[in-house]
């Protein structure tokens, strides 16, 4: 399966999405990410019981914070898929990439670049 997906997605591997804290999501935006998605196991299939469900709650909270800070709630998302769903993975990547491209660069990256210029 040589599936194509956008090359500018930077993957950070974690043992379980339950490890992803709210702070990590916000930090990614502080460092200039245009969008962040969390890809967890299918709901009900978490190896650690509820890790992916906690991750979803944190993504929801991150959406609220991003909305309040003017970054926009759509720049963060939670997806669930299994390790065997390679096609779905590629599809999610393309879908999210397209969503972020439509939103344009994050205002943070824009501000960073302006400062550097």
């Amino acid at each position: 399966m040589r599936l194509q997906y956008p090359t500018d997605i930077h993957i950070i591997k974690v043992p379980c999405t339950g490890r992803v804290d709210l702070f990590h999501l916000l930090q990614a935006f502080e460092q200039g990410a245009d969008g962040v998605f969390v890809a967890g196991c299918l709901e009900g299939d978490c190896h650690y019981m509820h890790g992916n469900l906690y991750a979803r709650k944190r993504v929801e909270r991150a959406k609220e914070i991003l909305a309040a800070t003017g970054i926009g709630r759509d720049r963060v998302e939670m997806y669930n898929l299994s390790a065997g769903q390679g096609t779905r993975w590629a599809e999610i990547c393309r879908e999210f990439d397209e969503r972020i491209r439509n939103l344009g660069p994050s205002p943070i990256r824009f501000a960073h670049e302006k400062k550097a210029a």
Partner: peptide
């Protein structure tokens, strides 16, 4: 500490985007 970091991060995001 966790909540302080989240709030700090959120405030930085706000100020940055507001220029």
């Amino acid at each position: 500490m966790k909540e302080a970091k989240v709030l700090g991060s959120a405030l930085r995001l706000y100020f940055t985007q507001a220029g």
